[in-house]
Amino acid sequence: MDRRNVMLAGLSAAVALGSGKARAAAVGSAFASFRQGFAPCRFGQVHYWQGGPASMPGKVPLLCLHASPGSSRSYAAFLPLMAAQRPVLAADTPGYGLSDAPPSQPRIEDYAEAMIAMADSLKLRKIDVLGNHTSSSTALDIAIRRPDLVRRIVINSALVYTPQEIVAMRESEAAYAGLTFDSAANKVAADWPRMRAMQRDMSEEDAWAFFWEVNRNPTRSIWGYEASFAYDAGAALPRVTQPILVVSPNDILRTQSLRARGLMRHGEVMELPWSAGTFTTHATDMARIIGRFLDAA
């Protein structure tokens, strides 16, 4: 079997995880008590996981948006901890995970509209929103568009880029722009060891499953990055009227995140000491930090 067939076989297995027992087995006990479903948006269907109590006095559902590329699976360690505190919802961004894809490169505004459509379909009257890296801008845009819906916002890093930084970031992601299935297949042997090294806090099986989530469709893996580069988070932050918590690990986005100070009407930046594993190795810490911020209302 050549490399392309190896990759396609892996992607087929990942897609197969999207239904019934195969999906349940892949996500293991982390999602055992969660329900999954699909909600309509203008691109087709948005896939989501829903957990925790259906309602809890004084608590509103927390919508968790994942970094790109990837899927809601990246919150496997974090979601059960939050579900013990409040209702939670984790959605796949259109074009990632099991959500239908837009026909071409989307904007952050498109992602925000899809998440709002899902929330409206589920008849959610009020939510808190968690954004992670690329989806941090989506969280801001949802809050701006629907202040009646969003109560509080947490973002893992604020993407307040300078024009020069966007050029540099695009250059760093150039290897993933214009990927075909054949060229992506040729990268698998080199990419897997790098992914495994970055995800040492996961079991080998979970890291392998996450690897295929990231590579589910390599032709659009860069869409989330491009959407975030085109969105002016620095201009969006002052427009948000809700309380914002920016958590800033000591990683490559620390400088950008610190710029959020002074841009927010009602916000704070919390510097974190670690550089990786925010929602995996440090999931317990994050559940406590986020829970305390959401309960302060």
Rank of each mutant, 00 (worst) to 15 (best):
Pro57Phe: 00
Arg86Lys: 07
Arg86Pro: 02
Cys64Leu: 15
Ser55His: 10
Asp100Glu: 10
Ser99Trp: 03
Ser68Lys: 05
Pro40Gln: 04
Val60Phe: 11
Ser68His: 02
Asp110Tyr: 03
Gln85His: 08
Asp92Leu: 07
Pro53Phe: 12
Pro80Val: 03
Gly131Met: 06
Ser29Pro: 07
Ala24Ser: 13
Asp100His: 14
His133Thr: 13
Met82Tyr: 02
Gly131Ala: 03
Arg125Ser: 11
Arg107Asn: 06
Leu79Glu: 08
Ser33Pro: 01
His66Leu: 03
Ala76Glu: 12
Pro80Thr: 02
Pro53Gly: 12
Gly28Glu: 11
Pro103Gln: 11
Gln45Thr: 08
Asn132His: 15
Gly95Met: 09
Val27Pro: 01
Pro69Val: 10
Phe31Pro: 00
Val46Tyr: 06
Tyr96Trp: 02
Ile127Cys: 03
Gly95Ser: 09
Met56Ile: 04
Ala24Asn: 04
Ala119Leu: 15
Phe43His: 15
Ala39Glu: 07
Pro103Gly: 09
Arg35Cys: 11
Ala30Val: 05
Cys41Thr: 05
Ala76Val: 06
Pro103Trp: 02
Phe31Asn: 07
Tyr48Phe: 14
Ser29Tyr: 10
Met56Tyr: 01
Gln45Trp: 10
Gly44Pro: 09
Ile108Arg: 04
Gln36Ser: 10
Ala101Trp: 11
Ala114Glu: 09
Pro69Arg: 05
Ile108Asn: 07
Leu81Ser: 01
Gly131Arg: 03
Lys123Cys: 14
Leu122Arg: 14
Leu81Asp: 02
Pro103Lys: 15
Pro94Ala: 14
Gly37Pro: 00
Arg86Cys: 05
Thr134Leu: 07
Asp100Met: 06
Asp92Phe: 07
Ala54Phe: 01
Phe43Cys: 13
Val60Lys: 14
Met82Asn: 00
Leu122Ser: 05
Pro57Thr: 04
Tyr75Lys: 00
Pro53Cys: 06
Trp49Ser: 00
Val60Met: 11
Gly95Trp: 06
Arg35Gln: 10
Ala76Phe: 14
Thr93Asn: 11
Ala76Pro: 00
Tyr75Ile: 00
Leu130Tyr: 13
Ala77Leu: 01
Met82Pro: 03
His66Pro: 01
Gln50Ile: 09
Arg86Glu: 03
Ser68Thr: 15
Tyr96His: 11
Gly52Gln: 12
Val46Asn: 13
Ala119Cys: 15
Gly70Gln: 06
Trp49Ala: 05
Phe34Tyr: 15
Gly51Asn: 11
Met56Asp: 00
Pro106Val: 13
Arg35Trp: 07
Val27Ile: 02
Met82Cys: 04
Gly51Lys: 09
Cys41Ala: 15
Ser68Ile: 02
Pro87Arg: 08
Gln85Asn: 09
Pro40Arg: 06
Pro106Cys: 15
Ala119Thr: 13
Gln36Pro: 01
Pro40Lys: 05
Ala83Ser: 15
Gly51Val: 10
Ser99Pro: 08
Leu79Asn: 02
